[in-house]
């Protein structure tokens, strides 16, 4: 099997997840080459062909032009599969490449299952195996699903170029507003959509307060405007590693879990026994937060008052 891995640059650097592309290739025992719009000064280390386009010329986000560049590499390499990360770069570019090739794409792959690929379904509660029927195909890999493989070697560089005409003009980027830094908190109590309404945030705050912790949130809570964006935990929010993480009414979507996987002890409170948060929880309490959180808060207060 011959894979063309599609690397990516973020803020002038190669993100660590690029190593997961190599990890995936290793699991398959595949021959690999890579295509990258990147800086000639920051190259991935592996021994194989590296189709390289200079980021100073082609930019970090320029999907129409990057598509042409990737297709050039495909033309020369003729891989069995073209493999992206399921990142903001990959999910945007992969379907464009698949459409140009008229081949199947399997998105957010988390595993290999015979001749098919495992992917999550229904907000992570179910999964399925998708098998491409076309002779070559496109994949995007769910970040965190495959081991990062640090390899060495010096790639053989093959410069590529493409027409730079584009209808999508990239203007620049904007950093998120600074807020509370949750990365050093020892206790985080996070509110999810399951808290039901904004007023119930008080229950979450009360628990955070007796534990001397900070409050965090899953994305829908922030989207609804109940808490500030800087408190969001996950791939598009903060990455945290507290000693205790309490997930209140959070289902455990892969993008949320990616931000709190490093927690020491995870307590989840959820009415749904099958919620995927159970995968990462050391303790799953099957209960309604409205009843359970006040009960827990008052028990902790009593325990602390008793002088341990």
């Amino acid at each position: 099997m011959k894979l063309l891995l599609v690397g990516e640059s973020r803020d002038g650097r190669l993100p660590g997840e690029v190593l997961e592309l190599f990890g995936f290739a290793d699991v398959l025992g595949a021959e690999t080459s890579m295509v990258l719009v990147g800086s000639p000064d920051v190259l991935p280390l592996f021994s194989g062909r590296l189709y390289l386009a200079d980021i100073r010329l082609y930019g970090e986000y320029n999907p129409e032009v990057h598509k042409r560049l990737v297709l050039k590499a495909i033309d020369q390499e003729r891989p069995d599969a073209v493999v992206f990360l399921h990142s903001s770069y990959g999910w945007d570019l992969a379907p464009r490449v698949a459409a140009a090739m008229k081949v199947a794409q399997v998105s957010a792959v988390t595993g290999i299952d015979g001749e098919g690929f495992t992917v999550d379904s229904c907000n992570g509660k179910m999964r399925r195996t998708v098998k491409p029927s076309t002779s070559s195909f496109v994949l995007t890999l769910q970040p965190g699903a495959f081991p990062a493989l640090r390899i060495s070697g010096i790639p053989e560089i093959i410069p590529i170029d493409a027409d730079q005409a584009t209808r999508v003009e990239y203007i620049g980027s904007r950093k998120p507003e600074a807020g509370v830094d949750l990365s050093r908190a020892t206790v985080i109590v996070s509110a999810g959509r399951g808290i039901g309404k904004q007023e119930h945030l008080d229950l979450v705050r009360d628990l955070a307060s007796v534990l001397g912790g900070e409050i965090g949130a899953s994305r829908p809570v922030v989207d609804a405007g109940w808490l500030q964006r800087s408190l969001q935990v996950g791939t598009t929010g903060q990455t945290v590693s507290p000693e205790l993480y309490v997930a209140c009414g959070i289902s455990g979507a892969i993008q949320h879990v990616a931000g709190m996987r490093g927690a020491g002890f995870v307590l989840a409170v959820n009415t749904d026994r099958d919620a995927p948060i159970g995968d990462v929880a050391d303790l799953l309490v099957v209960a309604d937060i409205v009843q359970f959180l006040p009960a827990l808060t008052s028990r902790i207060k009593a325990w602390q008052a008793s002088g341990f």
């Binding site: 903001s88 980027s173 904007r174």
Partner: peptide, 15 residues
């Protein structure tokens, strides 16, 4: 604005 990893926003213009 499109959302990138870590909450960074990329800004693009198109017609």
């Amino acid at each position: 604005e499109r959302e990138l990893e870590g909450g960074i926003r990329g800004i693009a213009r198109l017609k």
